[in-house]
Simulated assay, not measured.
Amino acid sequence: MVKELVRKHQDLEIYKMALDMAMQIFELSKKFPVEERYSLTDQIRRSSRSVCANLAEAWRKRRYEAAFVAKLNDCVRGACRRQAEAAETQTWIEFSVKCGYLDVEIGRELYGTYNQILSGLVNMINHSESWLMKH
Rank of each mutant, 00 (worst) to 15 (best):
D42V: 15
R7L: 12
R49V: 07
Y64M: 08
I117G: 02
S47M: 02
K30N: 11
K31M: 05
V69T: 10
E94G: 03
S50M: 12
T41A: 10
M133R: 15
N54T: 05
R7I: 03
Q116V: 09
L5M: 12
A67V: 05
H9D: 10
R7E: 09
R63V: 13
Y15N: 03
E129W: 04
S47Q: 01
R63D: 14
S47P: 01
S119F: 11
H127W: 04
A22M: 06
V122R: 12
L40W: 06
I25R: 00
H135V: 13
R81M: 11
T113D: 07
L19E: 05
R60K: 13
I117T: 04
M21A: 13
N73S: 11
P33M: 12
L121V: 05
S29M: 02
A53T: 10
L102W: 02
C52H: 00
H9P: 11
Y111F: 14
I125W: 06
S50E: 09
C75N: 03
A67F: 06
S130A: 14
C52R: 01
A18L: 01
R108F: 07
S50L: 12
D42Q: 15
V97Q: 08
F68K: 08
Q43G: 14
F26K: 10
M1H: 09
V122G: 04
I25A: 02
A53L: 12
W131C: 09
T91Q: 09
K134A: 14
L72Y: 03
E4N: 13
E109Y: 04
M133K: 14
A66T: 14
H9M: 08
I14S: 08
V69M: 08
K71V: 07
A58Y: 01
A66S: 15
S48R: 00
D20R: 10
